[in-house]
Simulated assay, not measured.
Amino acid sequence: MKKTLKMAALALMVSMTAVSCKKKVSDADLTSKATTVVATYPGTTVEVKDGQAHLSGVFATQADKDAAIAALKAVEGVKDVHDMATVAPATPAVEVNVVDAAVLQKVSDAIKDIKGVKAEDVAGVLTLTGTASSADARKVKESVDALKIGKYDNKIVVK
């Protein structure tokens, strides 16, 4: 019985020693592994101290940032990820102003009888150009105003 107890104690001591002798991964090795993980995200860096990964830089999207954090947490030996990174603001869509083709056609039809005057899209603004007598210029203005199209640029030269 004493022999069995000694053997059990020895086995317990050997197993505890084996567990405590488990090889610890160095921060340098973890930093190398973590850097490989975030290398696919330009503008980002990671540093590991005491098993804690410190992520910094700018990600293109929140999804990229979340994926990088998940990948870092999956690196064996990384205990936690400290997120110090940001997400680049979305670039606003460039608004291109264009006069609706139907509106342009309606105005052109309304002024077709007045020679020397035309309607066109100039930088997204309906613009009336050309030369006309004062009576014709008044007719153009009344015709266009009657369409209730809103704002337009009247550059008709009255002769």
Rank of each mutant, 00 (worst) to 15 (best):
A88V: 09
A110Y: 01
K118Q: 06
A74G: 10
A11S: 13
S143T: 09
K23D: 10
V38N: 00
V117Q: 02
D153M: 12
D121T: 03
A137H: 06
K106R: 12
F59E: 08
T45I: 03
K49T: 13
A71D: 11
N97T: 11
K2T: 10
P42M: 04
A90F: 10
A146P: 08
S15N: 10
K24F: 06
E76A: 15
A101Y: 08
H54R: 12
T86H: 06
K155I: 09
S108R: 15
D145T: 07
V140E: 04
D113K: 08
L126F: 04
K115F: 02
K33R: 04
H82M: 14
T131Y: 01
K141R: 10
Y152P: 01
E142W: 03
V144D: 05
D109T: 12
A34F: 14
K159P: 02
S133Y: 01
K159W: 05
T40E: 14
K24A: 13
P42T: 00
T45W: 02
I111M: 10
D66W: 07
K65F: 13
V99I: 05
G77A: 02
C21Q: 12
D64T: 14
C21V: 10
Q52E: 13
H54E: 12
A60M: 05
K139P: 01
A11I: 10
A101Q: 14
A85Q: 04
Q105C: 07
I111C: 11
G51E: 02
V144C: 05
S26C: 04
K22W: 01
D83K: 03
V38T: 00
Q52S: 14
N97R: 11
L10S: 05
L10A: 02
Q105G: 05
T45L: 02
N154K: 10
V25C: 00
M16Q: 07
A28G: 02
A39G: 13
T61G: 01
L147H: 03
A146C: 10
